[in-house]
Design a protein around this nucleic acid. Structure first.
Lengths: 334, 334
DNA sequence: AAATATATTGTAATCGATTACATAAATAAT
DNA sequence: ATTATTTATGTAATCGATTACAATATATTT
């Protein structure tokens, strides 16, 4: 590994001159520039980024902190984040927190220690509530979840509308007894629930508390809760889930109970995963614009680097309702 | 941000002493240690990892270079890699190459520039062929794909056995006209094919070239190729695919043709994705031990750090055949 | 008590790149 | 031709932590 000193020696100039050539400063004689470039090529010199970072007090690394990269939503977002990051000369440090506030704090601290330029983060409610005690040394863009108060950059789905849209859809299909399973770990579930209930309210449908559940956003919980809902004296005619893991669990439970979708029970969920259109019947979903979420979040962060003073911004993106067979026409039912 | 100098000043000692206290060196008077620790706590001092890395000439970062994190195999592996990395005090830099050899070279170079401690890499055939020209400055563990010659650490599936196992399974189910779609980008597809053909050969079944295809390992190619296979004068009775994206495409094509699985056409594939057991009929798959692959690869890398001289090692893991409904009993067919 | 060993702490070099400042050389202006 | 500018390059400080070496203080041995 050759250093800038080796290049300087080989080109018979000072390290300062080498640095200037590489940084494309003006005021270097063409002849000298050529000598330096030749030495660089000759030695196959590559600047040491660690040294550069130390001196410049900033790195070209972004952090991405999500609960679990295996959640298809985060998988898709992370890919978009990486693409955008690399396109702008940044690399990506990845962390999984499992919705564990302690891990979140640990990783945020790590990001500080690593001197990342900034972080894209999907926090739990707990960490969100302590946000102002944290005093992070780097800018952050929240995704998927956010504070009520608008003092952090964020890219979010319009969860209220999304919840409403899904609810309106099942209502329009004639379903009246509507079960719903939301994630409990984040603000997202709550907001989707509010949209959901608003739609029911607007349609004059009473909300039955026993139909609305908040659980850990995992397949297993979706499975268990669906069985509970189906075991009610008057089970729901359709089940709405607020993330794809819950949907998978619900689907499994419905299958095990031998119920036919959508004739005996409807099913709708969030996130257009690979399998939502592969299962039969295909699942109606509220698709999130994952690519745009990842890209916008990264761009927001880059803009924040460019102007630390500018007012925070919340980007609210709309979901897209993709109607499939799992929630078809049910008019005439009770 | 306070530096070690600030701590030294606050504790009225030299920076060397602060460093010693933090590194838990012996030979520091308890009283001084306390003073330093108090100053550290007081100032909320955290060592600057960049400076530490520069001085120690090594970082605590691993690189993970895969073709696309959205491929469920890599998603699962990456999670295991992260867990193991973090458990050992390392963080993870993530790159997606899209099977593009230029991107691979670029990212390998980046890893060098970032002075990562090591890299876990799933390379294309092209890059593998040029491996010895590369002269990487860091140790590497290959996953999923490898060189014939055993001079790089690697963690691999026993692809030959896996291919055989799947082929034997469909043979045992009475299928005789067997179509197969393999990925073309890597050695993996070739090996699975060799296992596949060996099993057919052992069973005395002739191999029909028109049934065996090599394509880009993507859903779209799986779809197109399946349509081609189904359009043959004597279409295969079962289709074997060598990764989950191909399986998804094949499934879609079969569905579109209105064919019944497994009565009219069987389907088997690789990787036990979330959806393989959710679709109906559930898909028979050769499951890869993704957790173990990720963990082993990371551990292999850590062992390499500990002993750069030790001979390279190839860890060959066995896949598990999970028989589901997509490939049931077909005895009596022609 | 002197000599020797051990414990404790500080000074300063080091990692590799960047850059403020100084200096020298070349050019332009008077 | 002399002075003022501009251009080109080098010297050395800097980023923050680690550590070889030196220096001093304390303890142990004889």
């Amino acid at each position: 590994m050759s250093s800038i000193k080796d290049v300087a020696k080989a080109a018979n100039v000072s390290t300062a001159t080498v640095s200037r050539v590489l940084a494309k400063h003006p005021h270097v004689r063409p002849a000298v520039r050529e000598r330096v470039l030749a030495a660089v090529a000759q030695l196959d010199y590559r600047p040491n980024l660690i040294a550069r970072n130390l001196r410049s007090q900033q790195s070209k690394t972004l952090g991405l902190i999500v609960s679990d990269i295996r959640n298809p939503f985060f998988t898709a977002v992370s890919r978009a984040v990486e693409d955008t990051a690399y396109a702008n000369g940044y690399n990506l440090l990845l962390c999984n927190t499992d919705e564990n506030p302690e891990k979140e704090l640990l990783y945020l601290q790590l990001m500080g220690d690593e001197q990342v330029a900034g972080v894209i983060f999907s926090p739990t409610l707990q960490t969100l509530n302590r946000w102002h005690e944290l005093h992070l040394s780097f800018p952050t863009v929240l995704i998927d979840r956010s504070l009520q108060s608008g003092d952090v950059d964020a890219v979010l789905l319009d969860n209220l509308s999304a919840g409403s849209l899904l609810a309106q859809h099942v209502l329009s299909q004639g379903y009246r007894r509507i079960g719903a399973i939301f994630g409990e770990a984040s603000t997202t579930g709550r907001e989707r629930q509010r949209g959901f209930e608003a739609a029911l309210h607007d349609a004059g449908i009473p909300i039955r508390p026993e139909y609305v559940r908040f659980v850990r956003p995992q397949s297993e919980a979706g499975y268990r809760t669906t069985l509970e809902l189906l075991a009610l004296p008057a089970p729901p005619q359709v089940i709405l889930t607020s993330n794809s893991l819950l949907t998978a669990g619900a689907l499994q439970a419905i299958r095990e109970q031998g119920l036919h979708i959508p004739a005996q029970i409807g099913l709708v969920g969030f996130d257009d995963t690979a399998w939502a259109s592969l299962v039969q019947p295909a699942i109606t979903v509220l698709a999130q614009p994952t690519d745009e979420i990842g890209r916008s979040a990264t761009e927001l962060l880059l803009q924040r680097f460019a102007d630390p003073q500018r007012p925070t911004r919340k980007i609210i993106l709309q979901g897209e309702l993709i109607v499939r067979e799992s929630s078809v026409e049910q008019r005439g039912r009770t």
